[in-house]
Simulated assay, not measured.
Amino acid sequence: MELKKMHRFFSLADFKDEEHFLMEQHRSGWKFLGTGGYTYRFEACQPEEYIYQLDYNDEENDESGYLAIYEDYGWEYIMKLNSFYYFRKKKSEIEEENQIFSDNTSKAECCKKILKRQVILLTTFFTVLLCCFIIPLTNGGANWSSLAFRTVMTIFLCIYVLLFLLHMRNFRKLNQMIAALRNPLEREE
């Protein structure tokens, strides 16, 4: 059995890109085994058309019942990572069978759950920024004459700027997905 690992980064808002990546790998003869976040593990297989779908579910419900619903519709459960459940099934000729959510309302609700998680992460981000950077500066606890302090704080601030930009990108992308899924009648109101 031949195995391979690939490194990829997908943020919260990139779950559709991640699904497409996994489908392309299966089409190329590499079946998805699992991921720890950035490292994807694959096993060699016959190239086939498989659909991969991710569902975001952060509710503390009966997981076995949740998975049984998908299994009843032919979806194979692969794994769970950070409230994302990974499923796959052989591609069907009937397009509706190739989607976990067949209606736009359900798709939009899933995106709203992910957006809520993004808001929580962004709030945490600002709280940490406030505690670690802004408060020491305003309380006089910062020693800007120290080269080590200035270097650490500059690196820290650069990382936070990059994380902030990623959070804002995710926020914008998720809002665009939700807007695209809205019922045309809702858009007119």
Rank of each mutant, 00 (worst) to 15 (best):
C111G: 04
K90H: 03
R8E: 06
S146D: 12
E43Y: 01
R41C: 08
L67C: 05
E186L: 09
T39C: 12
I134F: 15
E48A: 12
N104V: 11
E2Y: 11
S146R: 07
K173L: 12
Q118N: 15
R172E: 04
V119I: 09
L115A: 05
L181Y: 08
D62C: 05
Y50S: 08
L163F: 12
E43V: 07
Y160R: 10
R182S: 03
M168W: 13
Y160P: 00
V128Q: 09
L129S: 01
W144M: 13
S102V: 14
K80F: 03
Q176C: 06
K4S: 03
K112E: 15
F10R: 01
K89V: 02
D72V: 04
I178L: 08
E188K: 14
Y52E: 02
Y66G: 02
S146K: 08
N104E: 07
G34W: 07
Q25D: 03
N61L: 10
L12I: 02
W30C: 00
N82T: 05
I135V: 15
F21D: 00
I69Y: 12
I51D: 09
Y40V: 01
N57L: 02
A142C: 10
L157E: 04
S11R: 08
Q118V: 14
Y86T: 05
A179K: 14
E71I: 01
A142M: 11
Y56S: 04
F84T: 01
E49H: 14
M79K: 12
G34Y: 05
L174K: 10
F171C: 06
E48T: 13
F164I: 00
E59Q: 14
R172Y: 13
T35K: 01
L81R: 15
I100D: 01
I134S: 02
Q99S: 07
T35M: 00
